[in-house]
Simulated assay, not measured.
Amino acid sequence: MCYSDSDPNYHEHFEKYLFDQPFDEVWETYVSIDPAKAWAGKMLHFNQLYSRETGEEVFPGQEFKAEMGVGQVIILNLHVFNGAIKLTIGHEVMEVDKNKKLIRICYLENSKSEGSQFISFKTLPDGKTEVSHKTFYRSGSWFRDKVIYPYFHTKAINEFHGNVRNAILANY
């Protein structure tokens, strides 16, 4: 259920991350990181990756041999309130374009929320890389969209981008 810019009824969430490394190194880590490492933390837990293109399935503990690509479905478990509430969410990778410096992910149909996440990369004059994570979302619930979603989405994407940062630093 992707965001459509012709429909104004979406909420917007935005976070920015700064990396000391150049674009190519940051990009390569984002598209090649093992999903079990990318989606690992107090709240995020990798459950499964399925590729619509190749039929490949990856579960926790299995080696991820590919790169992030269009048609990959990523299933995550979220542990909220220290695991008191456990939710399963799904995303599909819709675009991975190094030339456009963009990764676009959409929510799976029948999820609580619908919309898209845009991860954009920008090379800064000092050679560092800025990563912007913009999300357009809606769920049909004012309370979920205005109170719950922004708080937990920020926690989730901070874990994700922090894990990518750790993977970059581990290469040094």
Score class of each variant (00 low, 15 high):
Met1Glu: 10
Ser4Glu: 14
Pro8Ser: 10
Tyr17Arg: 06
Leu18Val: 13
Asp20Thr: 10
Gln21Ile: 02
Phe23Asp: 12
Phe23Ser: 02
Asp24Ala: 06
Glu28Phe: 00
Ser32His: 07
His45Ala: 10
His45Trp: 04
Phe46Asn: 01
Phe46Lys: 01
Leu49Asn: 03
Tyr50Ser: 02
Arg52Ala: 15
Glu53His: 13
Glu56Gly: 00
Glu57Ala: 00
Gly71Tyr: 11
Gly71Arg: 15
Gln72Met: 13
Val73Ala: 01
Ile75Gln: 12
Leu76Gly: 07
Asn77Pro: 01
Leu78Ile: 08
His79Gly: 04
His79Ile: 03
Val80Tyr: 01
Phe81Val: 11
Asn82Ile: 01
Asn82Trp: 00
Thr88Leu: 02
Ile89Phe: 10
Val93Asn: 07
Val93Ser: 03
Val96Ser: 08
Lys98Gly: 06
Lys98Glu: 09
Asn99His: 15
Ile103Gln: 02
Glu109Ile: 07
Ser113Tyr: 11
Ser113Lys: 03
Gly115Arg: 08
Ile119Lys: 08
Asp126Ile: 13
Thr129Pro: 10
Glu130Gly: 02
Glu130Val: 05
Val131Leu: 12
His133Ser: 15
Lys134Asp: 12
Lys134Ser: 03
Ser141Lys: 05
Phe143Ser: 09
Arg144Asp: 13
Arg144Leu: 14
Val147Trp: 15
Val147Leu: 10
Tyr149Lys: 09
Pro150Ile: 04
Phe152Met: 07
Ile157Lys: 06
Glu159Pro: 00
Val164Leu: 14
Arg165Pro: 07
Ala167Met: 07
Ala167Ile: 06
Ile168Cys: 03
